[in-house]
């Protein structure tokens, strides 16, 4: 009952009752667990709602802002590569206290691609939640052993003289790929540049968009 009351006055965009409870057994179980935790005072409905809003505020646009700044400001890029955590905070972005962001740069010689083979570690603070494929068993098993065919599935074919460097983020580090700045973008503004930086390019399965 708390659950229904709780939703009736906060979320007008969709009907929470039909969208969540009829979804699946897991959806129903989630409602039950959440209701119990709220009843027990573990957290309040407001606190949970606030947390969802925080999550929704995190998106690849944040990472794109970081990359675009690195493209136009060599000193910033140097700081980002030396200490990404501080460089990200410098732009007013929040990071997680439980993990540390490290930036890796794609160059003419090296292409970086990120995976977490054990679970789904991902720089959520600046990219939001990972896409479904990043969490899939197929990506996790395949990209470490056969990165080039996997990248080809994403439409990225790299010549053999570019070394592919796979990062398996097994521990407390969260990797951000700085894609190469596309050619012919000298006159673009920082905001326009950020528009070329896709989520997939910051995971390393794509290049930044070209003009």
């Amino acid at each position: 009952m708390h659950d229904h009351d709780d939703h009736s006055h906060h979320d007008h965009s969709h009907d929470p009752i039909t969208s969540e409870a009829e979804d699946s057994l897991f959806a129903a179980r989630e409602v039950a667990i959440r209701t119990l935790l709220i009843e027990k005072g573990i957290f309040s409905a407001d606190e949970l709602r606030h947390r969802v809003e925080l999550m929704e505020g995190r998106s690849p646009a944040l990472g794109a802002k970081v990359v675009a700044r690195a493209w136009i400001d060599g000193a910033y890029k140097a700081r980002l590569l030396a200490d990404a955590e501080t460089a990200v905070q410098e732009l007013g972005l929040e990071t997680m206290h439980t993990s540390k962001i490290v930036a890796v740069e794609n160059t003419d010689d090296t292409h970086n691609v990120i995976v977490c083979t054990l679970c789904s570690c991902y720089p959520i603070a600046i990219l939001g939640r990972p896409p479904a494929w990043y969490k899939s068993l197929a990506y996790r098993s395949r990209v470490v052993a056969n990165p080039r065919p996997v990248l080809e599935e994403f439409g990225l074919s790299l010549p053999n003289d570019v070394a592919v460097r796979v990062h398996d983020s097994t521990a407390d580090i969260r990797y951000l790929v700085i894609p190469q700045r596309p050619e012919g973008t000298e006159n673009l503004s920082e905001v326009e540049l950020a528009g070329l930086v896709t989520r997939d390019s910051m995971i390393g399965v794509a290049l930044a968009q070209s003009l």
Binding site: C119, L137, A138, A145
Partner: peptide, 16 residues
Amino acid sequence: HDRGGWPDETPIDRSE
């Protein structure tokens, strides 16, 4: 959960 390198030919489902 330790999936790295498991034999897997499944194409990656890239749908959002």
